[in-house]
Design a protein around this nucleic acid. Sequence first.
DNA 1: TTCCGACAGTGGGGTCGCAAT
DNA 2: ATTGCGACCCCACTATCGGAA
Length: 507
Amino acid sequence: MLLIDLARTSAAVAADSARLAKIRHLAELLGRVEPDEAEIAIAYLSGDLPQRQIGVGWTSLRDLPDPRLAATATLRQVDDLLSRVKAQAGPGSQAARKALVTELFAALTAPEQTFLSRLIRGELRQGALEGVMVEAIAKAAGAPAAEVRRALTLRGWLPAVGAAALSGGVEALRAFHLEVGRPVAPMLAQSAASVAAALDKLGGPAAIEWKLDGVRIQVHRSGDAVSVFSRTLDEITGQVPEVVEAVRAFPAADLVLDGEVIALRPDGRPAPFQVTSGRVASRTDVDKARRATPLSVFFFDALRVDGVDLLDLPGEERHAALARTVPPELVTPRLVTDDATSGEAFFAEVIREGHEGVVVKSLQTPYAAGRRGAGWIKVKPRHTLDLVVLAAEWGSGRREGWLSNLHLGARDPGGGFVMLGKTFKGLTDELLTWQTERFLELAEGPTDDWTVAVRPELVVEIAFDGVQRSSRYPGGMALRFARVIRYRPDKTADQADTVDTVRSLML
DNA sequence: TTCCGACAGTGGGGTCGCAAT
DNA sequence: ATTGCGACCCCACTATCGGAA
């Protein structure tokens, strides 16, 4: 199959807003792809590369060679070349990558260049990724979407599942099973504003667990072989020897567990997320990193114990299996209750201990791998500040033509404002329209292609999860997960919150 | 007919490793 | 020694479609 076929399908998918139409376009293409190119087609049309990452990003794709007029590139040829790009390493590799990318793009027509460039940058913007592709595979293979979804959960990689479905139908899908050593898409959580709201949503007793501000892990053990995977299913075994040692000591030789690693201070309180994150990312001298920043591990779910798959069992039965296998001090602390008052008290206590919040979990629901299932609901405290808009950046994609990303500043009692970060979240289309107009009225000072500086007059209420140390911003601190709640037309900039207030929140 | 679950899109701060400067 | 880039850790929120209620 030719790359131009995918480029045309992608354009058609983007042109139709209806999901069912997108699915039809994708299924039609899957119906005519050769079996040995099915994985490539599925990967590309759901926004992925079979190579996952190839060391080429936005900057490397800025100036492309002139396009050709005739489309001749096959999927296989493109895929082979991208594998060669990925394989470059060592001195001279950046130039070698660049040369290969240029060679590849010089062989493509304009629509192919656009498609491939967007794909590599991760900005396909066709309104269809994995979720829609699951439906398209089901349609093309004549199988129920639920079977495709189940296989995806267990295999973790849609192109493999889709290729099997296209060639072997439902039977091939049913052959996928949980395999120790191969990661499963982790279950995700929805969120709620309070424990009471979360309990209300679940209806009935639930488990309220500590939410640790660390890094999610999935651990597989078969005999002495232990593998640890990240949330995106990358293997990080070598970076977390503490986990490997802990799990080897458990009284079960066949395990799949879900948990979190976190750096704790000597007094048992959590280190800032940046510390845990940096430790987990360290690969070059793990022993040294470990001595400086030891990791603790806590488990909260069991997907398999001693040869028995637990994914489809109710949460409580999985937790019972976990408790039989993992020593109590390594099980994430929890409270089972249906009482909102004691639930809120538990939440308050967890926050006092310095942790991020809680996850309220249904006792009944199975492990909804890879989905933001309704069975888990996270609750975190929310801080707010009234800050001043210092500038805004032009948006892209569906926000093109709108001033979108806000630069936020706190008032300096000594005069002026100190920038604390940016946010684009929480804005409705209506608000985007309003603020674009307003900012252009207030525009002043240095303005580049992306940024419009404005007179610091507008006050906006910002929610955020915490204040982190920052080397990027002049005040030495930045807001974590900042988002807009509302504008405050009732306030003037001299009534905005000060940097001193922000600094007091950093501890 | 209305409601709501699931998805895609739009970007945020921080850190590490590597190659280039 | 420093800088730029890619990858990945954490992530919130709105708009939209279409099936569920």
